[in-house]
Every structure is written in structure tokens, then in C-alpha cells.
Design a binder for these strands. Structure first.
Lengths: 210, 210
DNA sequence: TAATAATTAACATGCTTATGCGGTTGCAAA
DNA sequence: TTTGCAACCGCATAAGCATGTTAATTATTA
């Protein structure tokens, strides 16, 4: 029996969901609330398996409720419900430890399926939401942004700078004179529009050159 | 009519999928191949809407095939098929531009649904795969790792170092003497176990102190 | 062929950093 | 009330860095 706690401000939807879930074998709504005011106490006393949490609620919204729960409980599975696959909310919810993110228009049969999936450790997501997550993910992992047309040798020098090497050490590592190292670094500074070692290192991280 | 190109080395599964898709209204398998050897040419000549790509194939595997396609075409939707929700492959596929990632044991009805979803811009994912993506995502966005017990003032100095400030500029910015800046920085180096400005900056990025 | 860029190298000058030492003040915990 | 710590300040020295100028060689490209 999967024990569900429900947070949804719309009375019709709240009733509808409760009936749906309670009317299905293996599911049980322990309680349903119209806001997150006492969410921490409620979670602690009911100890549900899954929490269904509407994003858009008056007072304490779903994201805040999510954060409150996660501050005291990392185990309970939390399924976020929303009308729109809104970018900022998705990001914030995922970041705050939501286990799934589904649209309210999801058909009832699927909804039960999703509850089951989240309970067993999966992360059910409406495909459009998943697309956004992937987009954010690939953006963050975009390999090597603008390398500012650094030459191979210059990139090599920059890499060593990032690793904390001094000019002398770089010269030794690359088998070139220290003055050559200077030449390379001067060129790197021009290309990166910086004028110190630490600025170059910072830019290397920011622009994902290394 | 959604035009599908299929890559799957197992003959039974390849035939099964082809029959399933061709037997459904609105779907059409243009061709099905047992490997990715000529994937670029095939994609360019058939111009499919969706490509279903098995991960585990002899010769050129699915990930390599995916990369080859993405090198010449960013628009076609690519749905990865796999037996296991294997961590490394998921990561690599997502990073390389896959639009969805589903398990082979997905029931036929759902499979068609997924093809439709990916075609309209969604990112269908088996819940267990999505859970892994979320895990990676939250890990990357873990806010502020170990701050190495830097004091508030030390963190402030480090932040300015990261912004490329010299000692003199930091002194000006913080209304303290340059010798005080030195004191702070010396302490920072001790706590971060480094001994140069650029190393400190690099560590600040790596450990997400800033 | 001429021009451009990358790589290598040298020399000089002044500024910046790293590191050593020393110190005062104020606050909070033991 | 002593002890510890953060935050503040000073001086001195050696090493490291930034910047200027100059120039040879090689490779690529227009």
C-alpha cells in the first residue's frame, strides 16, 4: 500500500485526486491539504511514501513546501504537479530535491503509474519537462565554450597555469625557455583580454577552456 | 506521418519494432539497419523525423552513432534504446545530444507514444533513467561545497582575488591596509593548502567556494 | 610569392607576490 | 580570567610576474 500525502489548493482537483487514488488498489491518500503551512509537522506525523505537491499554491507555494520537507526528510518521494512546464520552476524544483515533475493534465491512469514509479526510486517526468531538464543539463556540460582562438601551445600553457605552475615550472615541463613562456602568456592575456595570471585562470574556468 | 529510422543489431527486435511501427497509423519505418557504419549517409538521404538507436551494437556503438549524426544534423530527434539504465552511457548520451532514453522492455503501446513525444520536442525517458539524470543534475548544482572554514572576511578577499583584483585593489575595495590583505591571503593559502594566487583562484572554482 | 600566425628566444625595468617576523584590538568560549 | 581567534597593521626581502622591445624559424594561407 503506497501512502500518499496530497497538497493542492484547488478543491475540485484535490477531491478528484483523492478519489482517484483511494479508489485504486494499492494506493491510499492519508490526508489532503490546501496549503503547505504545516507541511513539516504533517509529513512527520503521517510518514507518507509519496507526496504530491502542487507548485502554484497561495501562501507557501510548492517549491517552498518542497524545501521545508527536504530540510527534515530526504527519503520521502516528492512528485511536483504543475499546469505549465515553466522553466524557472522546473529548475528550482529539481535543484531542491523533487523526485518527479508532471503536468496536471496527465491522464488518471498515468498518474497512478507515476506514483508507483516515484515510489520505487524512479523519476517520472512529463516529456516536455524532461526536455527542459536535458536542455539545462547539456547547456551546463557544453564542452569547451569559446576558446578565444588560443593556439595548441597556448592552451597547454594555460592548462599549466590553471594547475598552479609558475613560469619556471612551465618552462621545465614544456622544455622551453622561461622567456618563451612569457611570450606565450603575453599572447594568452591579449586573447583573453586579461592582464594577470589569476584573471586568466578565472577566465579559463568561466569559459570552460580547461 | 512520422518517419523513423531504426538502428538495432538484434534481428528479432529489429523486425519486431519495424512491424510494430509500420503497423501503426501515422508511423513509418523508412529503413532499419543492424549497425551504424554508414549512419551519416543514411540520415542525410532519408531525412527521418526520429531515429531509434540501440546503445549496444557491435562495431560502431550507439553513442558513437549519435555523435556522428549530431556532427552533421542537430534537428533530427534521436531516441536511445538500451537494456540497462547504465549510468555512464546515460550521461554520455545526454551530453552528446540524445533527445530521449528508454529501456527496451518498454511496452509497445508506450513506445509509440514515446516516438510521438520525442517528435514534438519532448524528451521521453524511462523513470529510472530520469532519476539518474536528476541525480547528476543535483550533484552538479550542489551549492557551495567545502568552504575550508574560511572566515567571512577571508571569503570576501578570495572573491576579489577571483575577480582579478591585485592586493592594492583589494585593500582599496575593503578599506583596509595592504598588509592586512597580505595577512588574510596568507591565512587563506594555509586553509586551502595552496601557495599562490592562481592556485587559490583555481581551488575556489573547483571547490565552488565562489 | 607575400602575408600572417605560431613558436621559439633574449634582455631590461618596475610592480606584485610570497614569506618571514613582529604587533594591537575586540569578542566569545572555556 | 585566560585562551583562542578574527581582524587589523607594519617592515623587509627574495622571488615571481607584467610589459616593453626585438627577432629568428617554420607553417599556413591568400
Amino acid at each position: 500500500m503506497i501512502k500518499v500525502l496530497l497538497y493542492e489548493d484547488n478543491p475540485q482537483l484535490r477531491e478528484g485526486l483523492t478519489m482517484l487514488i483511494n479508489g485504486s488498489d494499492g494506493f491510499e491518500v492519508m490526508a489532503a491539504y490546501k496549503n503547505c503551512t504545516n507541511v513539516v509537522e504533517e509529513v512527520q506525523s503521517f510518514k507518507p511514501d509519496v507526496i504530491m505537491m502542487d507548485i502554484d499554491m497561495p501562501g507557501v507555494n510548492g517549491i517552498e513546501g518542497l524545501k521545508k520537507i527536504r530540510a527534515v526528510n530526504d527519503d520521502v518521494k516528492i512528485l511536483m504537479l504543475t499546469v505549465f512546464d515553466d522553466n524557472a520552476n522546473v529548475f528550482e524544483a529539481i535543484r531542491s530535491g523533487a523526485n518527479g515533475y508532471i503536468l496536471k493534465k496527465t491522464p488518471p491512469a498515468k498518474l497512478l503509474e507515476y506514483i508507483q514509479e516515484v515510489q520505487t526510486g524512479g523519476a517520472p517526468m512529463t516529456a516536455s519537462v524532461a526536455a527542459q531538464v536535458l536542455k539545462m543539463f547539456t547547456k551546463q556540460n557544453a564542452l569547451k565554450g569559446d576558446d578565444h582562438d588560443l593556439s595548441d601551445r597556448e592552451k597547454q600553457v594555460l592548462q599549466l597555469l590553471v594547475n598552479g605552475y609558475s613560469y619556471k615550472m612551465i618552462a621545465g615541463e614544456m622544455f622551453i625557455a622561461i622567456d618563451t613562456v612569457r611570450s606565450h602568456i603575453k599572447k594568452i592575456y591579449e586573447k583573453l583580454h586579461v592582464n594577470s595570471k589569476s584573471e586568466a585562470v578565472a577566465k579559463a574556468f568561466k569559459d570552460r577552456i580547461v
